[in-house]
């Protein structure tokens, strides 16, 4: 089942990149996707059935919209800090607890944190994420955990766990 999932994904990718629907092209895509599935299939998700639930796709859309909005905000934040003559920075590495369990969800959360304003993920050890923050606004762990992980954690929990 997992092998079929990664086969279909890589086939879609091949067809989008080449975009020619002739027989030799499709045959080459099938061979390449089969090789990819044979090598990387065992690293894929355990439960492919999650892809077929509409509820998860809804929350994925919500997450995507808020993620893009955070990205744009992050860019203006960087522009403000770079263009300001005195460079208002107060950097540091803080420790944040996460409640997500699966590897895929954690990777997604780390990527979201990297793209949101002022933060970049350094490492994940156990349940704790270490995050470099360009301007530390608060010293209270509960407060800055909510500031950094924000809404992303609940959205990701709803569609990826």
């Amino acid at each position: 089942m997992r092998y079929l999932g990664i086969f279909i994904l890589s086939m879609i990718f091949w067809l989008l990149v080449t975009f020619r629907f002739t027989l030799p092209n499709i045959a080459a895509g099938v061979v390449a996707s089969a090789i990819t599935a044979a090598i990387f299939g065992r690293y894929y998700f355990h439960n492919v059935g999650k892809f077929l639930q509409p509820r998860r796709w809804f929350w994925f859309t919500v997450y995507l919209v808020s993620f893009i909005w955070a990205c744009i905000k992050a860019n203006f934040d960087v522009a403000y800090r770079v263009l300001h003559p005195a460079m208002p920075i107060k950097p540091g590495i803080v420790k944040v607890k996460t409640t997500l369990k699966s590897d895929f969800a954690r990777t997604l959360l780390a990527n979201s944190i990297t793209m949101t304003p002022g933060t970049i993920t350094v490492d994940i050890i156990g349940d704790e994420m270490y995050i470099h923050w360009i301007f530390i606004r608060s010293e209270d762990p509960a407060l800055y955990t909510r500031m950094i992980t924000g809404r992303f954690e609940e959205y990701i929990k709803k569609f990826a766990e």
């Binding site: 744009i72 860019n75 522009a79 800090r81 770079v82 990297t114």
Partner: peptide, 28 residues
């Protein structure tokens, strides 16, 4: 946006801040 990112690559003081500014701005 790329101009802002490269400006950050020059101006910011240490490797972590540079990486942060440059990755965000240049990727978007």
């Amino acid at each position: 946006f790329n101009i802002f990112g490269c400006l950050g690559l020059i101006r910011l003081p240490d490797v972590y801040n540079r990486l942060q500014a440059a990755t965000k701005c240049v990727t978007l």
